[in-house]
């Protein structure tokens, strides 16, 4: 059951992402992407990471994509005819490189090798403990980084 859901979701993700990146209309692309992210969130959930799944929906599909939309609106980029979109000449190197990269990666990732059969799901408690016991500094760094994202954005946004 979970397996089937996984493959379905995987298909949704790939297709949605494919649409997202080929879509001439940026706003539409964002919408496709949100779809993809939702599906991804479900996969996260299936993989035993409910918290990450939730954040994926809230932060990614929610905040970040909205930020994108906001900027697109602000810069008035919602008109595909204004922005030239990639043609065949742009796609073939992209496809080629992406393909080679993918092929190589897939080859590497599918080489059978000894590994654990798979662990169980992780509870939120474990997650929280790890976060603040082992990676306390990481939280600090991230907080600082977010602060400076603010500082930077303010600085750049300030009109002279």
């Amino acid at each position: 059951m979970e397996q089937i859901i996984f493959y379905i979701l995987a298909a949704i993700i790939v297709i949605a992402t494919l649409f997202a990146i080929t879509e001439r209309h940026t706003v539409h692309a964002i919408v496709y992407l949100v779809t993809s992210f939702f599906a991804l969130a479900v996969i996260f959930y299936l993989l035993g990471a409910p918290l990450v799944a939730v954040f994926e929906v809230i932060i990614y599909a929610g905040a970040i994509m909205v930020l994108f939309l906001f900027v697109i609106m602000m810069l008035d980029l919602g008109h595909p005819e204004k922005v030239s979109s990639p043609g065949w000449r742009d796609w073939w190197p992209a496809t080629l490189l992406g393909g080679v990269l993918l092929a190589a990666t897939v080859l590497l990732l599918t080489v059978p090798h000894a590994g654990p059969a798979g662990g169980g799901a992780i509870g939120v408690r474990d997650f929280a403990r790890a976060l603040f016991r082992q990676y306390g500094i990481a939280v600090e760094v991230i907080s600082m980084q977010l602060l400076f994202a603010l500082v930077g954005a303010l600085y750049l946004g300030r009109r002279r």
Binding site: I13, V14, T17, L18, A20, I21, T26, A29, F68, V71, I72, L77, V83, S84, S85, P86, D90, W91, P93, A94, T95, L97, G98, G99, L101, L102, T105
Partner: peptide, 18 residues
């Protein structure tokens, strides 16, 4: 997904947002 993302970056040189 990674490859698609990379392809997007490479192909969409006309649009920073993409």
């Amino acid at each position: 997904i990674f490859a698609l993302g990379l392809a997007c970056v490479i192909a969409w040189r006309t649009n920073v947002i993409m």
